[in-house]
C-alpha cells in the first residue's frame, strides 16, 4: 500500500497511508477512533474508494477493484459486524464460504473445524445463536474456506470478553501458522501489538508510527497517546 488517499463518497479519510504485509506476517493497524484504520483496510478490499496511490498485491495494482475479484486473488475480508449468515447453521456458513469451490469443500471444512474445535459441537446450530466469540470463529472460518493468501480482519475482538479476546488472538496466530498473512485492525492495541510481527499506528488518516509489535509497545510516544499510558 503506497501513499494511499481515499475514503467514501466525496470526502477523503485517508491522506497518504503506506503499509506493507509480507507473506506469513501478522500486521496490526492501531490508532484512535477516526484515524482511518478500518478505511485503510477497506480500501485494500475495494470497499472504500482509492483516489490516489497504489495497492499492490504481488506487484499487481488492485486499487478500486471489485471485492469479488479481489477474493479471487486470494484476499478474504472479515467485517467487524454482520460477518456471518445468522439463520444458516455453522456448517452452512462454511459451505457458503466455499461457494466458488468446485470440489474439496468437505476437506476444507474439516480443516476449519480442526482450527476451531469449539465449533464442531455447534455445526448444526444457527450462527446467529452463538456467542460473540464463536461467531467470530465462524466468520473467520468462512473466510478461510478459500485458503486466502491474505486475511483481513476488521476489529476481530470488538465487544468480546477478555477471555474470548485472548482466544481470538491465539487463533489469529494459529491461522497465521498455516501460512496465511494477516492484516488486522484493532482497538485493543496493546494485545494486538503483542501478537503482531509488525504494527502501524495511524492518526488522522496518515502513518504516525511503525515498527515491530514489541518496538511499538516499548515506544513511550506510542504508549502515551495510543495505548492508554
Amino acid at each position: 500500500m503506497e501513499d494511499v488517499h481515499g475514503g467514501y463518497g466525496e470526502a477523503d479519510v485517508l491522506h497518504g497511508v503506506s503499509m506493507r504485509v509480507e507473506a506469513h506476517e501478522v500486521v496490526a493497524i492501531v490508532g484512535s477512533n477516526g484515524a482511518g484504520k478500518s478505511t485503510a483496510m477497506k480500501a485494500v478490499f475495494g470497499l472504500a474508494r482509492v483516489s490516489r496511490g497504489r495497492i499492490l498485491l504481488d506487484g499487481a495494482d488492485i486499487a478500486n477493484r471489485q471485492p469479488d475479484r479481489i477474493v479471487r486473488e486470494g484476499v478474504c475480508f472479515v467485517p467487524q459486524t454482520e460477518n456471518v449468515f445468522p439463520t444458516l447453521s455453522v456448517d452452512e456458513n462454511l459451505d457458503i464460504g466455499g461457494f466458488t469451490l468446485k470440489e474439496g469443500v468437505r476437506e476444507r471444512k474439516d480443516g476449519v473445524y480442526a482450527l476451531f474445535p469449539d465449533l464442531v459441537a455447534k455445526r448444526r446450530q444457527a450462527a446467529g445463536q452463538l456467542s460473540g466469540g464463536q461467531r467470530q470463529m465462524v466468520a473467520m472460518g468462512r473466510a478461510l474456506m478459500l485458503r486466502p493468501r491474505l486475511l483481513l480482519l476488521d476489529e476481530p475482538t470488538a465487544g468480546l470478553s477478555p477471555l474470548y479476546m485472548d482466544q481470538i488472538f491465539k487463533i489469529v496466530r494459529d491461522v497465521n501458522a498455516t501460512g496465511v498473512a494477516v492484516l488486522m485492525v484493532e482497538q485493543n492495541a496493546r494485545q494486538a501489538l503483542a501478537i503482531a510481527d509488525r504494527g502501524y499506528v495511524l492518526a488522522t488518516g496518515r502513518n504516525r508510527h511503525e515498527g515491530t509489535g514489541a518496538e511499538l509497545i516499548a515506544d513511550p510516544a506510542v504508549a502515551e497517546s495510543f495505548l492508554g499510558g
Partner: peptide
C-alpha cells in the same frame, strides 16, 4: 441444494453473500 443455501445466505446478509462469490 447449493442454490437453496445461496438463496438463504443472500436473504440473511446480501453483502456477505456477494463477497462470498454468490
Amino acid at each position: 441444494t447449493r442454490t437453496g443455501k445461496a438463496m438463504r445466505a443472500m436473504a440473511d446478509n446480501p453483502t456477505l453473500a456477494r463477497l462470498s462469490g454468490i
